[in-house]
Design a protein around this nucleic acid. Sequence first.
DNA 1: CTCGTAATGCGACTGAAGTCGCATTACGAT
DNA 2: ATCGTAATGCGACTTCAGTCGCATTACGAG
Lengths: 231, 231
Amino acid sequence: MRLESTLSGANHPEQPPHTPTPRPGGRSARVRAEVVAATLAEVTATGYDGLTVEAVATRSGVHKATLYRRWCGVDGLVADALTASADQPWPLPDTGDLQQDLRRITHEVFSVFTDPELGPTPTALISAAQRSDAGATALRAFFATRHRQAAEVAERAVARGELPAGTDGAEVVRAATAPLYYRLFVSGEPLDARSAERAADAATLAARAGLFTPAEDATATPTAPEAGPAT
Amino acid sequence: MRLESTLSGANHPEQPPHTPTPRPGGRSARVRAEVVAATLAEVTATGYDGLTVEAVATRSGVHKATLYRRWCGVDGLVADALTASADQPWPLPDTGDLQQDLRRITHEVFSVFTDPELGPTPTALISAAQRSDAGATALRAFFATRHRQAAEVAERAVARGELPAGTDGAEVVRAATAPLYYRLFVSGEPLDARSAERAADAATLAARAGLFTPAEDATATPTAPEAGPAT
DNA sequence: CTCGTAATGCGACTGAAGTCGCATTACGAT
DNA sequence: ATCGTAATGCGACTTCAGTCGCATTACGAG
């Protein structure tokens, strides 16, 4: 697991460049791993509301002052735990059919957040990340990576001629997964496999219709409800 | 503004039913209004991270202890402010065309969160509401109301024969608005009028294809990627 | 107009989050 | 093997969120 780079970048904004050996040694890495594990356990156990630096310190055996020094409080702990999770690889489907691929992806998302094995950890982690600026930054990076990776299923569909050229793959992925995340983290509605499937199908339909090409719009576009500068 | 009922329901779980006149009088209402206004101002000014009960107390002129007594801390303040905002009416389009109606709705959402007049207040309010259980409950109620109201545009489309019978109107609305909220509050990506339009168009397409009818599935459904119980 | 009661104002107290300076440990290079 | 340095351990201190008991004010009924 290599989660040093992102962390140091997030917590030491003014890293002096003349540091030949900034001690990336064994102890620091071990401490870091244990802190991440303890943070995940604490977030899962108490939820993001009850998350305490002192509890993470006790559970990890790392002193409170060290946690504040390197992670700048609860926010940084959660952000780092999320970053560490983002480094985990996940399977990218390749069935030869866009609809199937998107269904696999949305079902994967659905599974992660409903898996009794993982429990409330993924949900709690993202909810916690939403709380702070550091967490929000980590979230942005997390989803940017996911979008970039998953966009490949759409790009393959373009290569197969299944989608029009110029289709924005990341936008297709966003369209497919957005309803799930919306239910989970915004409207708070329950998630079910049916709606995951429908979201994938709707995105497939829209992508095939050419809605996700920046230049042209394939569907009827009679009147634009707005006319101002869109920025 | 009638935001008493929801608040008391949220903060006094065991309201004794034998309270003939629980003092809904003028002062309480005035205090409540000022506290809500102060909470909105504080959330806008400092963001949900810097929101403090003491600051709301100072700004509103209501004593700290009173705020803790009636709102149980920051969570309740935010939840009540959100509930108050949810009571505000908003325009429901009726252009005679589903696509146009949905575009108006998504553009309305887009406008609320990008209006320089309102500033960061709506975003900050919802972000703050995500932080706590009380806020999450208020959020659920908020979106449930919105979905119920906005579902009418889909129901009218069904009545016009534009959508297949049995279409779940709320699901259509969710599909149209989810990408916007996803960008705003989950992935943290910027919002633009184009994507708002595309989201509405994609939902229109999916609805017309019959994806939002509970029983049948109009598109191809060759293989189901999952087979377990969905709960 | 007067009174009973509920709601608010008030200030002190408690407890925990977060900070600081120094001692100690362990990494990495010679 | 030895040393310089960076990272961690440690405990006290500061600050502020949150609580409690009591005095005061104002609503609502008669």
